[in-house]
Nucleic acid binder design. Sequence first.
DNA 1: AGGAGTTGGATAGTTGTACTATCCCGATTG
DNA 2: CAATCGGGATAGTACAACTATCCAACTCCT
Lengths: 210, 210
Amino acid sequence: MAELARASGCSVATVKYYLRERLISPGTEMAATQADYGEAHVERLRLIRVLREVGDVPISRIGAVLAAIDDTAQPMDRVLASAHHALGPLRSDDSSEHQAARRDVVDYIVGRGWNVDPAAPALDVLAGAVLALRRLGSSYGVESFEPFADAAFEIARWELETIDPSRGPTDTVTQIVVGTVVFEHVLLALRRLAEEHHSNQRFGGSAGGA
Amino acid sequence: MAELARASGCSVATVKYYLRERLISPGTEMAATQADYGEAHVERLRLIRVLREVGDVPISRIGAVLAAIDDTAQPMDRVLASAHHALGPLRSDDSSEHQAARRDVVDYIVGRGWNVDPAAPALDVLAGAVLALRRLGSSYGVESFEPFADAAFEIARWELETIDPSRGPTDTVTQIVVGTVVFEHVLLALRRLAEEHHSNQRFGGSAGGA
DNA sequence: AGGAGTTGGATAGTTGTACTATCCCGATTG
DNA sequence: CAATCGGGATAGTACAACTATCCAACTCCT
């Protein structure tokens, strides 16, 4: 276990914690005080660290994501949907307002011809955003999602085209999950930088200038 | 104060908490047990709730963002940069690896001709992502950011064009901050839905079919 | 064989965040 | 003039993610 901790870059105590939380499977027990871990365990731990530190995914959801990844009985598209579902928020807003906003959102998505699970938590996120904008007195509605949806569509197309399914389903899904979580933050960071750039071009006089 | 809590939708205890944390200014004191709050306080509280609940921004950063918004002495582009800085992560990774990755990222951004603050925390996020991908044995590098950067550029351009600066600097910056935080989640949710759609098209046989 | 040192597992403690509840006191009101 | 209400200070709670301590079994060395 000490070796596993060294190889994966987390402390022995943390490895024990992840074992307790069932994020990793116990090693094959050699004796009462000795267990053996393989390369798969090291990679699993590295994945957990990336999801936690880069993706800021809570431990409980990481568990759900890993369970989805490991469920090799499911076809690829179902696994991805489960992983996305696990990465999404645990919505608690069941108000009628939220339900109404959610229906608008689903109509919009279906209207675009997107083929998604109607239970996807991402739809609740969108509904929450619509509600928040309305509450703040903003005039934005689902129609203001248009440029974002266009961009998201192209990005996702590129990402899925880039996926190489030749190394087996588990590797492929892992690839997609890492992509989802890591490139999510990449996209956000790039958007902020782009915003800053355009803001400097538009409002700034000091450094850039258009 | 009770009225303020009612109008803003949070509990009196929470309002007191935000006062302690200096997220809102004390009302004008009418007597030792009576303070008066205006419409500005209600709006400020609503903004805080949206940043917390939709944006999942920690209280400490909300404080920093609000401070940036309120600093009317600064020109618009500086205020936006401060707000973005406050919304970014408090990077603690000072390793030489991280520094090297950060330099790659800065080169890439500068190479695209983007005019941004070299201290922007978003650059650290990108560096962290590069490092994480490398650690997981992925072959992706900064060059894989290209489609994301193109998309982010267009999105940010559209967003900045949409901004209406006619209602004074504070309102404008608030508009941008809300946009940054709320549309961030919109973009992510749409990307996940688009991924799910493309995944269904590519791998799924059941419901959609291309 | 026997003691030092290590390992894995169980349990309890720590840190940080975001609230929430209680207490007290001065002020309003019937 | 007493009951109550509002506001500020203080302490307490709940949850997440670790972290530290303890214990007994086991290995290694002599």
